[in-house]
Amino acid sequence: MAVLVIADQTGGALSDNTHKTVSAAKAIGGDIDILVTGKDCKSAAEAAAKIEGVRKVLLAQSDDLGHGLAEAVEAAVVPLMGGYDAVLTPATSQGKNFSPRIAAKLDVSHISDIVEVVDASTFVRPIYAGNALETVQSSEAKKVITVRPTAFKAAGEGGSAAIEDIGAGDGAGATKFVTEEIVKSERPELTGAKIVVSGGRAMGSAEEFQKVIEPLADRLGAAVGASRAAVDAGYAPNDYQVGQTGKVVAPELYIAIGISGAIQHLAGMKDSKIIVAINKDGDAPIFQVADYGLVADYKAAVPELMSALG
């Protein structure tokens, strides 16, 4: 049994999502190798080599891989699959973009967004916005899986695996990268943050969102999230969206401010350890999942919260 884990890295910095996916691979069992794809990302391969329990790190670099083009990642992975029984990728937008292609090329199912490994061929995954948990069993020769990182503990460090450069693969073919707008932030990354402060439609404007949500997040060292309504209205950028179709978070503390708690939003945060809701409507559904609810106008409550934090 051998499992390939595809690393999550940006600009040579290895994301913790990789360590969490390695834990899922350990639950499946067998030898674990990590493939790092990107451009100028040797440092990520070096970090991956330190993850405990890893046999070998493979490094594939090219411009197309640096832009994460799905066709290029698929072309780098598929030829390796002769040597592996399973390939696991963190269920980030990037992972969701290429992983199903690998399954299609291998003519096997794609097992999306698993939250538990029952045994080497049985997995649990949320469906219907997390309102049901489906246990599926695969008898296929190869398993192609995306892993919900928040559901697994990060594997530890202390390994010293060898790094092998495997070249670039075939590239993305006809698909060309044009530009990107990536927001650089000093705040912790949303999906891995210990604390998340999210704002909803109640903010009413981007200025208000920045004035209310961001200072509180910075005071707590938290990442900033948002509801779909807040993102659609332009109060917050798209990559802040938490929910069924946005990012899934499970921090120690999630603070929802002016968010009603639609099932699509809950799908992205209800596995948080502690949930706090501030909403002026005492009947808002968010209070059904909140450990601590404060029925109040955020305009008064957030400044009071800031001063109570000192």
């Binding site: 083009l69 990037q94 698909t175 060309k176 990268f177 530009t179 990107e180 707008e181 990536i182 990559d239």
Partner: peptide
């Protein structure tokens, strides 16, 4: 396209 850290633009025939 909506990607993890923001937006990416690609083109294809």
């Amino acid at each position: 396209r909506e990607v993890d850290g923001g937006l990416q633009t690609i083109e294809a025939p």
